[in-house]
Design a binder for these strands. Structure first.
Length: 309
RNA sequence: CGCGGGGUGGAGCAGUUGGUAGCUCGUCGGGCUCAUAACCCGGAGGCCGAAGGUUCAAGUCCUUCCCCCGCAA
């Protein structure tokens, strides 16, 4: 089929690659404009752009798509059968959605209608759900409200966001490729979302990573996993910011104030949280790499009674 | 050229005003012990990120480069 592919981050790379491999003709890869980012303030291409260049696919990077006649015209001239959208970063207006023959299909990282929005993978982990997955939907003008065309699920277990992300990206690639094998049948079987069951997963910010030790150890542990690798769960200790990357919730109760270090040993750092203990096993000091708490304590001292905030 | 921290035995850290490297842990051997992540004794293991330079002498000063990381985006 003749496809337009719209996506930006790593999550959107595997599907584009698999579709290209499956023999589809990707007329354009549409992605967000290059941005200044990273250390050194370098101009970085989006992962989708990098891959598109590698695959020899022409790249479009409109800064806005609403009321952008030039962009719309290019799409019309491409005469696509469908547009595949995955974490593109902008909501598409009706004028664009209607251009492809079969409309636009979106790959979303959750089991819709649960977790519509920008951070579905993280939200599923934080919520403590047993499983999550990917959903292919036939896009409409709303935010992740289109009819559902296909779904695949996977258990969350103790996976981090990064692990789930990579897994779901692959699942999404497979699912969209399969869907396109019989797109007419898939669209015929499309199922409406039950709005009553919908939840929203807002975009994360750096501040979301700040650890609130009044939460239960279990909740904090889930957030640590959800925010790995970004934005990272951090806390302030003795005036410096530390990131916590691995922890386990213990049943053991404590009277110590929330955030107090009650024990520091080779097996971890025990911190009071929500009346019980959160044992931190992997930590990162500023300017340092992630390391096991035991390793960190070999060359650094954390005194019992230190309070994290 | 956005700001900043760092690269030292397997791991984490020290290393003073430059004078041939130290701590904690691990590891190996031995001892003590009912026993132990305990304790005691002993040993192995380091081209101090790379390349130049200054110097009688550099981990420690200067230059260039490589790599890792935090902030900010």
């Amino acid at each position: 089929m003749r496809l337009i592919y719209m996506g930006t981050p790593d999550f959107a790379v595997p599907p584009m690659e698999m579709l290209a491999q499956a023999g589809h003709e990707i007329i354009y890869a549409v992605t967000q404009p290059d941005a200044v980012r990273d250390r050194g303030k370098k101009v970085k291409f989006s992962p989708v752009k990098e891959k598109a260049i590698e695959l020899g696919i022409p790249v479009l990077q409109p800064s806005k798509i609403r009321k952008n006649e030039e962009f719309a015209q290019l799409l019309r001239e491409a005469a696509p059968d469908a547009a595949i959208v995955s974490a593109y970063g902008k909501i598409l207006p009706a004028g664009i959605l209607n251009i492809p023959k079969y409309g636009c299909l979106n790959i979303h990282g959750s089991l819709l209608p649960r977790f519509r929005g920008a951070a579905p993978i993280q939200a599923a982990i934080i919520a403590g759900d047993e499983e999550t997955g990917v959903t292919i939907m036939h896009m409409d003008e709303g935010l992740d409200t289109g009819d559902m065309v296909a779904k695949a699920a996977t258990p969350i277990g103790s996976k981090t966001c990064e692990e789930l992300h990579d897994e779901l990206a692959e699942m999404g690639a497979k699912l969209i490729t399969e869907t396109l094998e019989d797109i007419e049948g898939a669209l015929r079987r499309a199922e409406k979302q039950d709005d009553a069951l919908s939840t929203y997963a807002p975009m994360l910010s750096k501040a979301d990573g700040h650890i609130d030790f009044s939460l239960s150890p279990e909740e904090i542990e889930r957030r640590i996993r959800a925010f790995d690798p970004w934005p990272g769960s951090y806390t302030e200790m003795n005036g410096k910011t530390y990131k916590l990357w691995k922890a386990v919730a213990l049943d053991q109760k404590t009277d110590a104030a929330a955030g107090t270090v009650v024990a520091a040993g080779k097996d971890g750092l025990d911190i009071s949280a929500g009346g019980r203990i959160l044992k931190v096993t992997q930590i990162q000091a500023p300017g340092k790499k992630r390391m096991e708490t035991g390793d960190y304590l070999r060359g650094n001292v954390i005194e019992i009674g230190t309070v994290l905030r």
